[in-house]
Amino acid sequence: MSDKQVFQDEYFTVLVDERRGIVRTIRSSAPFTSLEELEGIFTRLGESLDALGRSRYGLLADLRAGPGRNDPEFEAIMEQRHRPRWIGGFRRVGVLVRSTVGVMQIQRHARSDGVERMISKDEDELLKYLTQGG
């Protein structure tokens, strides 16, 4: 694997594959303990992604290990502040999920935040999408 780790904390690992032009954010299974802590978590993640130069890369957001959470307060703060900080500015975005329920939840996010992305349980399909021109 030609991925280079550029960031890691309790919640996210960021890997870069320069050859394919893909940044991979991998969500850990650690639950967020409070809404207040999200600010720091997504600031650190966002800064690490900014440092790479987002527009040069496709983003693969691997959410398979992440605990599901869809309470309204969490959803609202993610949509308004943190998801754009995470996925904004990349050439293309692919989201890797574990289940059909995950696909449906991310489709709902895409409708509400307007960021185009491919959502799949198939990593190869997403990698193909992220490395296509366009």
Rank of each mutant, 00 (worst) to 15 (best):
R69A: 13
N70P: 00
L49K: 04
R44W: 03
R98M: 09
H82D: 06
R81I: 06
G53I: 05
F74E: 15
R85P: 00
R98K: 13
G53N: 02
L45Y: 01
T43W: 14
F42M: 12
Q80A: 13
F90Y: 14
I87D: 00
Y57N: 01
F42Y: 15
G58M: 03
G88A: 08
L63P: 01
G102W: 09
R54K: 10
I87M: 06
S99Y: 03
I106N: 15
G88E: 02
N70G: 15
R85S: 01
R64P: 00
L60Q: 02
S99G: 11
R98Y: 13
H82S: 03
L63S: 00
I41A: 00
P72W: 05
M104R: 09
W86N: 06
H82F: 12
A65L: 14
R98F: 10
F74L: 07
E73S: 14
M104T: 07
G102T: 03
F42L: 02
G102L: 10
R56P: 01
A76L: 07
L45Q: 06
Q80L: 08
G53E: 05
P72D: 08
R85Q: 07
A61Q: 03
G102C: 11
L63Q: 09
T43E: 08
G66A: 10
R83M: 12
R91M: 05
I106H: 12
T43F: 13
E79V: 08
F74G: 07
P84Q: 05
F42R: 02
G68H: 12
N70D: 09
G58A: 06
S55G: 09
G58V: 02
R108N: 14
G88S: 03
I41D: 00
Q80N: 09
G53S: 10
L60R: 05
S55C: 04
A65M: 11
R108S: 09
P67R: 10
G68C: 08
G46W: 06
E73A: 09
L60V: 04
D71G: 08
S99C: 06
L59N: 05
R92L: 11
R56N: 03
E75L: 09
E75S: 05
R91N: 03
G88D: 02
W86V: 04
D62A: 06
R83Y: 11
